[in-house]
Write a protein that binds this DNA or RNA. Sequence first.
DNA 1: ATCATTAATGGCAATATTGCCATTTTTTTA
DNA 2: TAAAAAAATGGCAATATTGCCATTAATGAT
Lengths: 335, 335
Amino acid sequence: MDKKNKKKELLILQVLKESDKPLTSARIAERLGLTGYDISERTIRLYLQKMEADGLVSSNGKRGSIITERGLEELDSSWVIDKVGFLSAKIDRMSYMMNFDINSTSGTVVINMTLVEPKIFAENIKYIEKVYYDGYAMGNLLTFLAPGESLNHIIVPEGMIGVGTVCSITLNGVLLKHGIPTTSRFGGLLEIKEKKPVRFVEIIMYDGTSIDPLEVFIRSGMTNYMGAIKTGSGRIGASFREFPAESRDKVEQLAERLKRIGLGGLVGVGMPGQSFLDIPVSEGRVGAIVIGGLNPVSILEENGVRAYSRALAGLIDFNRLFHFREMESRIKQFL
Amino acid sequence: MDKKNKKKELLILQVLKESDKPLTSARIAERLGLTGYDISERTIRLYLQKMEADGLVSSNGKRGSIITERGLEELDSSWVIDKVGFLSAKIDRMSYMMNFDINSTSGTVVINMTLVEPKIFAENIKYIEKVYYDGYAMGNLLTFLAPGESLNHIIVPEGMIGVGTVCSITLNGVLLKHGIPTTSRFGGLLEIKEKKPVRFVEIIMYDGTSIDPLEVFIRSGMTNYMGAIKTGSGRIGASFREFPAESRDKVEQLAERLKRIGLGGLVGVGMPGQSFLDIPVSEGRVGAIVIGGLNPVSILEENGVRAYSRALAGLIDFNRLFHFREMESRIKQFL
DNA sequence: ATCATTAATGGCAATATTGCCATTTTTTTA
DNA sequence: TAAAAAAATGGCAATATTGCCATTAATGAT
């Protein structure tokens, strides 16, 4: 029994470690549920008691428990895979950090960045516009970063510009601000036929990778946007998310509002507990497909340009973004 | 309770479905354990009884149980993520299918295939030899497939050859024949300094991806073999495996024997329950790092050649393989 | 500041899971 | 082919987990 016991203790410690504030049993159960471990609230309380007696956690009355130094040591000396470094963790962190407010349409949003020579970018603008136009992009906004500007360790080198496209994680962030916890499950290559999503042909789970799946698909030349924008059939990057079934309506409303301000990217939402595009969803949850934020610039790679793209590159203020129609005129200042 | 109950039933059904022969409770518990679900033998027997009463499985006395038609339907109508399509499943299937025998050094082994023009291949032979020579390849054997030959749906087109390199899954297969069940955990980019492995810089779990991680790293140009073979520092593809701690000695023996016949690829084995190169391992298991089979040909991609590589391409007879020193002379017939 | 509402806790009993083991069946060995 | 060894099963009792709920603390509204 000891062994399995230990495992659950470590899972709880892990959750507590990742949170800065105290968590109650209900909260812990919820998070564990999201990660695929079903443990009842009650059981968690039992564990918390035992662990408090052992000095691994410290209870804060009814405000929840936090992990102690001893607890952290215990965690270090053990073998729970440290999900830090995995995409799922980065996603959680980023959506927590951004602070875009949908009412005032201000604040920061998460963007991806692509470094490319302005001249080459200018040559491909026609295609990129088409990607936005056909709705294969996250909304219709983007930004340019001038040479010398930096974002989160990445500095735009001389002779290049940074193209910042809105990351689809922005949606998670907005939902989170409205109390809806989103789980990003996987990024994949979505096959499009007659402008409609058919199925995912390749998949990489966010909790099993340290590099962004969409970056991967783009870099290895597996996407086919040229087809998507020309004939309506191709393969584009997309991401699968899940949220609680109760919030389905609210999600759709928020998505609609986001769309109006140029941040739309929701391809579709499934029905509670039902599989969506053959992707099964846990009970009490609904699935949704979100367009990949890097889509517009992946056209570059497809046309043989080795552009350096980085998903989840950092946060940027919403009012720095402009409509894709302005690309043509704005790029001139860098030529 | 009903809900969780259901989940376990489905897990058991899933295991039974994947097996062609009847499985006993111990066998089922073992397999589930490997996939990360710890359920005791006894509990599984309890479930099997209930499920037999419901007509989902049919017991074969003490030889184990098999899934019935009803059981298959139940599984179809439910939402267990179908791991078919994921790499972990493919790996299991392949290592089960190959039948190389270490004593008679005969039988089939799993290979990866790369399609490339003979001329271009010939130009890069020097580098490829060095990869083998420095021990960054799986053993020192490979094979060529002539135009028109096919392997598992892939046909070598005219004007090209298929380069078959030994896949590291071959190791799993050999161990399996000797009763050692191996779990392939992830593929990653292994950083090499002064010819020694330092740490994994990127990771993709096999049970969370539908495309081979090493293929991904190679295609997106993240490897650095040129560095590895020239200065001793670089990034190469490698894979992390786990097996039961009891079999540690036997594994090392077998690996040694494989090495002697040209199929070596084991970089190192950890100690029981201890983390190895900062990768934590479950209790009662040991971790091991295995060289990526596609390594030799990834030099091509690094040198700007867009070669089409496919990991786990298929099975081929061991006696079709030749030593890498023969590349030079053997390639001539295709030029 | 007070009261109503909401959320969290721990006790208790009902279930579920597991360890242990005697018994039976299968497999291996002599 | 018979005997010995190994593996599998199901009964029973010990633990572990969970559902339910009365009690109590925190939060929000007036």
